[in-house]
Amino acid sequence: MKKFSVVGAGTMGHGIAELAAIAGYDVWVNDVNDDILLNARNKIAWSLSKLRKEEALERIHFTTNQEEALKDADFMVEAVVEDLKVKSQVFSKASKLVSENAVLASNTSSIPISEIAKAVDKQERVVGMHFFNPPPLMPLVEIVKGEKTSEETVKVVGEVARKMGKETILVNKDIPGFLVTRIMFRINEVGCWLVDNKVADVKDVDYTAIQVLQFPMGVFLLQDYVGLDVSYLIQKALIERGFELYYCRAFEEKYNSKEFGMKSGKGFYTYDGKIIRPTLENARMVDPSLLVSSAINESYKLIRLGIVSREDVNKGCKLGLSWPKSPEDYLKEFGLSPVIRDLKMLYENTGLPHFIPDESLTRSYS
């Protein structure tokens, strides 16, 4: 493998390019204008200096010419906006320019790979390669098989990820949101339900998530960091593809008001260039088992359906979300009865059937 191409030089794209260069690949980075590319180059240079890997910058080429970036590439990672039309355009062009046996990977966190693959002729070489933010620091890559993804393609992606120093998990069935995003949005939906129904406020939810569940960035604070524009578009993409989810109105409100979180200076919290931590003053504890109940239910369902293994659920939550415990660990901590009670309460209040306790959950402690 000689040429590694990254399309999209934003937060994820430039981090992926940096990892590829450190791994020794000749990397080409493409985006729509020189300002974006210069910003990406500066961020990569800063990061490489911290890692004492400055020589890797010499292996990265920046260009606004997408054809130049893709021509004869052996491996492509697409990291553009979470929009099927835009992604499909990238893959359609790539399929005509890359080398004959090139792998075409998407960093999407929500859109099924099989939908993206329809833009190319050789769909067996299209795969999901989902990195986590920031890519140079987060240890996990989520590999997602589309309906026609070949085993050889999965093998190559695993090898590339390991060469980048990453652990991997495998999603066997191409479902919206895959594993880690689905689990995260199960936490989001309960937090949003609590806030929407005035059971708690944003600070209460984050205080409980950080202090009790020991999530490193809580719930709403994490979405501020991810970008509320991104969170809203992912939520929209998931629901449009049939993923049952309590709709978080707050994400839509923040999106429409252009309060995107840390990147815009204001989201659920206000920023001055630094990530903040919610103050403990006046924060109230919410039921921690309620906060994780939907995520626990989702994890057991995905395992039962053979979409992911139990080991990969544990690895995905710990390495992709930086949780100190797996959903199974939280179930053991809080007990089955409280979690079942919480799920039934959510179902009674929303009417959403995904809150009904999964059969594998109810028999797990029988």
Rank of each mutant, 00 (worst) to 15 (best):
K3V: 05
K3Q: 09
V6P: 00
A9E: 03
A9M: 05
G10F: 11
G13Q: 12
H14M: 09
A20W: 10
G24F: 08
W28K: 05
D31Q: 07
D35C: 00
I36T: 13
L38I: 06
R41M: 09
N42F: 09
I44G: 10
A45T: 10
W46N: 12
S47Q: 14
L48E: 06
L51H: 10
E54F: 11
E58Q: 10
I60F: 07
T63S: 11
L70T: 02
D72I: 04
A73C: 01
D74H: 14
V77M: 13
D83W: 07
L84V: 12
V86W: 05
S88Q: 15
V90A: 06
F91P: 07
V98Y: 01
N101E: 15
V103M: 15
V103R: 04
S110E: 03
I113W: 00
E124Y: 14
V126R: 01
V127C: 07
M129I: 08
F131D: 09
P134W: 08
P136Q: 08
L137T: 11
L140E: 08
I143S: 02
G146H: 03
K148D: 11
K148Q: 15
E151N: 10
E152K: 15
E152D: 15
T153W: 01
T153K: 02
V160C: 03
A161T: 04
A161S: 14
M164G: 00
G165H: 08
K166E: 13
E167Y: 15
E167K: 15
I169V: 15
N172I: 00
D174V: 07
D174F: 07
P176H: 12
P176W: 14
G177R: 00
G177T: 07
V180P: 07
V180A: 09
E189I: 06
K198R: 08
A200D: 08
Y207E: 07
Q211C: 06
Q211H: 14
Q211G: 05
F215S: 10
V219K: 03
L222M: 13
Q223R: 12
G227T: 04
Q235D: 01
A237D: 09
A237P: 01
I239A: 14
R241N: 12
L245S: 03
Y247D: 12
R249N: 05
F251N: 00
E252C: 08
E253N: 11
K254E: 03
K254F: 05
K263V: 13
S264N: 10
K266G: 00
Y271D: 00
D272V: 00
G273V: 12
K274F: 13
I275M: 13
N282G: 08
N282K: 15
A283E: 06
S289H: 12
V292A: 08
S294Y: 07
E298C: 08
S299L: 08
S299D: 04
L305T: 05
I307T: 13
R310S: 13
C317A: 02
L319S: 04
L321F: 02
W323P: 01
S326C: 06
S326A: 04
E328W: 01
L331H: 06
K332V: 13
E333A: 10
S337T: 10
P338A: 09
V339W: 10
L346E: 00
Y347P: 00
T350S: 03
G351N: 12
P353F: 10
